[in-house]
């Protein structure tokens, strides 16, 4: 088993501005967003990265992503989560459809923020070796089947960062992301990467194209 390096990222150091959240929720609920966002600032997101000394290609990754990883000399596999902290906040607001929805949106956005931070950390590591690194890819996106989650988790310690997989490959706690980044001499970060996938309803396509 390759070494698994753990990180803690306080959300207070990666805080979202109300206006960034309003772009996703629409206007009119700024007070509610401010209040909920404040509660998130007490959460410490957890992340962990394992680097394996070869390319990772599994049948579940699909041909598009596999093409990128075939060129890699190393693969960084990561998980990250907002942990039980999010679940406690969500539980507080479960009875109110609006606040519960806003909590979900804010949590998803923080999960993405932390994923960017992890992607950047992996890029810095690759760069320190004189290598390039790719975008992050996750099971369930860009043709990588969600069932591929099991192969990815097989390289990680049991219950990494407190994340467990359900029978349906859903991660628990729910606001978690797993993925892989290719590292190598011929690997480059692509500013726009939706071209490799045809999923019209993907949330990333919405975010980056629409």
């Amino acid at each position: 088993m390759a070494e698994f390096t753990g990180y803690t990222f306080p959300l207070s150091e990666n805080s979202l501005k109300t206006e960034e959240i309003v772009r996703l929720t629409g206007p009119g609920f700024e007070d509610e967003i401010l209040r909920i966002n404040q509660a998130f600032l007490n959460i410490n997101a957890l992340a962990g990265v394992t680097v394996i000394e070869r390319s990772l290609t599994t049948p579940e990754m699909g041909s598009k992503i596999s093409k990128i990883f075939e060129k890699a000399e190393k693969t960084a596999l990561f998980v990250l989560t907002l942990g039980r902290g999010y679940e406690k906040i969500a539980e507080t607001y479960r009875g109110d459809s609006l606040l519960y929805y806003l909590t979900d949106v804010i949590a998803s956005e923080y999960t993405e923020v932390i994923a960017h931070v992890v992607n950047r950390k992996i890029a810095e590591y690759a760069s320190s070796l004189g290598l390039g690194s790719s975008n992050r890819y996750s099971p369930g996106y860009c043709g990588w089947k969600l069932s591929g989650q099991r192969a990815l988790f097989s390289f990680l310690p049991p219950i990494p960062c407190g994340i467990e997989l359900t029978d349906s490959s859903l991660m628990k706690p729910v606001k978690s992301i797993s993925g892989a980044v290719a590292i190598g001499r011929n690997i480059r970060f692509q500013k726009y990467d939706c071209g490799i996938c045809k999923d019209e309803i993907c949330l990333y396509r919405k975010k980056f194209i629409l």
Binding site: T25, G26, F29, Y101
Partner: peptide, 12 residues
């Protein structure tokens, strides 16, 4: 033409 929170407020 509406965001989800606006629909939720209507439902409430």
């Amino acid at each position: 033409k509406l965001f989800v929170p606006q629909v939720l407020m209507s439902a409430k």
